[in-house]
Structure formats: C-alpha cells, structure tokens
Amino acid sequence: MKFGIISFAHMHAYSYARALGEIAGVALVGVADPDPERGPAAAQQFGATYYRDYQELLAQDIDAVIICSANADHKEHAIAAAQAGKHVLCEKPISVSVPDARAMIEAAEKAGVVLQTAFPVRHSNPVRLLKAAIDDGKLGEIIAINATNHGKMPPGWFLDPAQAGGGAVMDHTVHVADLVRWMLKTEFTRVYAEVDTLLHDVGIDDCGMLTADLASGAFMSLDPSWSRPDSFTTWGDVTMQVIGTKGVASLDAFRQAGMVYVATSPNSPGRVFENGWGNDADRELIEAFIAAVKGEPNEGASGLDGLKAMELALAAYESANRAAPVALPLSVA
C-alpha cells in the first residue's frame, strides 16, 4: 500500500512517517508540503518524493494519504484527497467546525474511500486494557470520569486561532472525548467549561476545565491545559480515573517509562526526561487504518468519531463564552 503525507505542519507527521517505514508491505512514497524547507527535508529524511503542491501528490499512484496540515486546512486537503480517490487518515482534531467536518465525511462517503481520524491513544495498550475491563463489566456501571490531557505549550500555528481553530481546549479535548465515547459507547449531551489564557503570553486559550454529561447518565471532567512547563519530563499526559459501581480504574496511559537524569556539565542543572517503552500506538493507529482500507475489522476512529470529539471542544468554547452549560449535539445552521 502506497502512502503520501500532506504537510508536516503537525509534528505527528514525523511519527507517522517513521511508523510507515516499519510496517511490512507499506511505503511512504510522497510528501507534499508548501514549506520550501520543511517539505523537502522531510521527504529526504523518509526517502519519499517531494511535491510542493498537494494536488501533484494526489495525482500520483498512491492509495492513501495522512493529513498533518494545520487544523483549518484539513477540510481542503481531505476533500481533495477523497475526490482523487485516496483513503484519508486525518490528524486530530478532524477540523475546526462541524459543517467542515461534515463536508469531509460526505466527500469520503461519496468517493467511497475510508476517512479515519488519528486518535492514537485508542491504540495504547493500557487504554485497551481499560476498555476491556469496562466491556467485561469489571467496574460495573460507569458513574463518572475525572480525566486530564495535559501538554506543553506547542509552537507556531497551534497558537494562531485562524489556523488551529482553538488552543488547548481544541487541541486536548478531542483525545479524551474520543476515548470516553469509544469506551462507554455513549454520546455527550451537555458541557460546561471554564476556558482562559492564564499560563502563557499567547493569543489563544492555554487552559480550561470541562465538565460534561453523557447520555448514559455518567458525567466527566477533563483538564486539557497546556500546563506542563518546558522542564516537564515528557510531553504531557492522558489520565482517566473511572468510577464505576463495582470498581475504580486509574489510567495514566503513557506512564510506561523509566527516568533518565543527564548531567550536561558540572555547572549546569542537567536534564531529566522519560525513556518510554510502551507499545507503539502511532504504528498501531496506522495498522488499524490499513485494516479499514482492506475492509477488515479495526478499532480506528471514523470521521464521525472525529466530528463528535471536536464538537465537544466547540461546545466547551461556546459554554465559556456564555458562562453557562451548552447542550450537545450543537445546533448548526
């Protein structure tokens, strides 16, 4: 199966490109990126052909594309790819508005191609075990979830509302929103959120606190803040405390790591970082997508899953603007 990657604007493109190189029977053949430095460098790094214009890449003999452009560009790239008959794996959030996401889903349906949203956390083994425990009824009926998806402050277009469609709340609501929908097989019905720019000198929200109701009767809180400083030992976290009638589960999905303490020089404070050894969720995300393309069962997130996760973030912004809870699904004109 031949892959292309549209844009390396999102740093996950590098992880996906690396993973593609490790999967048998799969090749990354083309990279499209309008950035004259980033694009050719990435293409060279992964042994692919560089195209400045993504339409040129789509004209090649490829089966699928992974879209890692800025959030606001997903719609254009995904629709063009679908129209060119390419299967699409789109970086999260799927888009920046419900109508845009819907247009992407419709384009894929019309073209008869697979559209999946890249939610790699679904494919982390501790997360899979948690889902299995819930499915097996080990926790009983789920009452509540206390979750975090913390991160460091990202660079570049992530801080531009026009390109990112939102800051921390957009960036870090969707992973946990997807996990909760997927694990509990239910939908969000209502959300209240505090959203603000408090931690960094940026023109976009960098912290928030969401509290959501689920159709199952459970409720959830989620902290999506970019509250990890530069010195934090890893990129952030995905944690969930799941409270059930029969038991409680505490997930810290990326905790599978040893600590590394490096003395950089006698007079410097040194450096501390984590040496992870968990399963390769990025690779397994792509394997699930490949299974979908082959029509095989898989746990990949659909375009609609991507839309539903993004919708929670959009509703959170509306809630914060109105300082009141907002009902889901959002009514979209």
Binding site: A144, E194, T211
Partner: peptide, 15 residues
C-alpha cells in the same frame, strides 16, 4: 467567584 459541580451521593467533581 463561580462554581460548577456534578455529583452522586458518593462522588463529586467541582470546578
């Protein structure tokens, strides 16, 4: 200045 909370008889999340 502002409070939002969800709870059952044994569990609570407060913002």
């Amino acid at each position: 200045v502002r409070v939002y909370a969800k709870r059952t008889d044994r569990y609570a999340l407060v913002t």
